[in-house]
Design a binder for these strands. Structure first.
Length: 280
DNA sequence: CGGCAAACCTGCGAGC
DNA sequence: TGCTCGCAGGTTTGCC
């Protein structure tokens, strides 16, 4: 489920266990993720202290004490789990296992292997192909109505597709785009250019609120930062429209039996959920 | 250039 | 029960 809020929740879960700690050992069980892992990754990480754990869009950034940064993307199915050493025996999709000097085992598990890791120099981080073209963080002040208006102007693609464009705004995925458009009462089919103006003014806070609430929900589910499962970043969340085809949207006063409720359509080969009554 | 479909890989639930 | 099909939260590539 990793979109921006999930990655941020993972970051917050890893932080107290990994930040400031030394990686006592690292095991690479499967080097062929979306891209091949860097050569000798385990050796290059072992003995390094983690100075800080940051996030950019959907990328985790583990800043090391030798000036390198370990970039981690969770892809579609990537997860991080925490357990006390020695930890469980590695399962079939536990591709990389990190162990800290104070006895925590952090496991990167990714069945579909769409995830990636790369090790790059801190001063070249911004030029990394995965990061170089990213748009602003949606929760930053740089993402405002003026910016959005300028970027949507003249674009003849549905607003749904525009918001999934990571060069426009970085970190939104399929779920939160659906949810943000719902809260802003904008049809996902509306052309981006026609969102400029009053709709863009509504859309910016809708995006920020949807993300902020999801992060809050993730944080509250991680009260002690290690759940029974040890799994980070996954939490119960009640979507307004996502995966709710045919059901009443939470704010709709009309009967779903008559309107059909939340509708599912396919845009750019991906499911979009929306309420045709509220979203125009 | 812009926009869309397909590809990458595996697991899961629905339906037969 | 067991099989096949469709679908899944991301990103890149290539085609029109």
């Amino acid at each position: 489920m990793p979109e921006l809020p999930e990655v941020e929740t993972v970051r917050r879960g890893l932080k107290p266990k990994m930040e400031g700690r030394v990686l006592a050992r690292v095991a690479v069980n499967r080097p062929d993720l979306r891209f091949p892992l860097p050569e000798d990754l385990a050796d290059r990480l072992a003995g390094r202290r983690i100075a800080a754990i940051d996030r950019r869009a959907k990328y985790l950034l583990l800043r090391l004490d030798d000036g390198m940064v370990l970039m981690i993307h969770l892809g579609m199915s990537g997860r991080m789990t925490i357990a006390a050493a020695p930890g469980p025996p590695p399962g079939p999709h536990d591709h990389v296992v990190f162990e800290t000097d104070d006895g925590w085992v952090v496991t990167f598990n990714d069945p579909r292997r769409f995830g990636m890791m790369d090790l790059v120099s801190s001063n070249a981080l911004g030029e990394h192909p995965a990061l170089a073209r990213l748009g602003p963080e949606p929760l930053s002040d740089a993402f405002d109505a003026d910016y959005l208006n300028a970027r949507l102007a003249g674009r003849f693609t549905p607003i749904k597709a525009a918001l999934l464009d990571q060069t426009l705004v970085a970190g939104l995925g399929n779920i939160y785009v659906c949810e943000a458009l719902y809260h802003a009462r904008i049809s996902p089919r509306r052309l981006a250019a026609s969102v400029a103006g009053a709709r863009a003014v509504r859309l910016v806070p809708a995006v920020k609120q949807v993300l902020a609430r999801a992060i809050e929900a993730g944080g509250s589910s991680l009260r002690d930062y290690v759940q029974a499962s040890g799994e980070l970043g996954y939490f119960q969340h009640a979507w307004a429209v996502y995966d709710r085809e045919g059901r009443a949207c939470p704010d709709c006063t009309c009967a779903p039996a008559r309107t059909g409720g939340v509708r599912r359509i396919v845009q750019s080969n991906r499911s979009t959920f929306f309420c045709p009554t509220r979203q125009r």
